[in-house]
């Protein structure tokens, strides 16, 4: 991750990331609107072309892979709108990134309180 914070496992959305991920985040921002979510689902490749995603961003979208999306410049708040298309929330997103099952991830969150 090309940020100067250098905190393990912790992406920080710096200017470099903002520049790299602009097209991807702009596409995800468009998912605030229901018609755009439908258009994406109807023709995902055409929708990505419209927003001029680069090949790494397109592949990360096809893979539905959050860590790859972040590496391609995605910001988690905009990516959450992409996840929302599939009815997934931040716990699903967290489970995927940590390689845990959703049940284990939720249990880990509860355990933080003990």
């Amino acid at each position: 991750m090309d940020d100067h914070f250098n905190i393990p496992g912790t992406p920080v959305f710096t200017g470099a990331q903002a520049r790299k991920g602009y097209a991807l985040n702009k596409m995800c921002f468009s998912f605030n609107e229901g018609d755009n979510r439908k258009a994406f689902l109807a023709d995902e490749e055409a929708y990505m072309d419209k927003y001029q995603l680069n090949s790494a961003q397109k592949q990360a979208i096809r893979n539905r892979n959050v860590l790859e999306l972040i590496a391609a410049g995605g910001n988690i708040y905009y990516l959450a709108k992409f996840a929302g298309i599939f009815g997934l929330g931040v716990q699903d997103v967290g489970a995927q990134q940590t390689g845990m099952s959703i049940e284990d991830f939720k249990e880990m969150l509860v355990a933080h309180g003990h």
Partner: peptide, 13 residues
């Protein structure tokens, strides 16, 4: 809270 990265799910009581 942390939503992103492999440290996602981090909470510090």
């Amino acid at each position: 809270h942390q939503l992103d990265g492999t440290r996602a799910g981090f909470i510090n009581k």
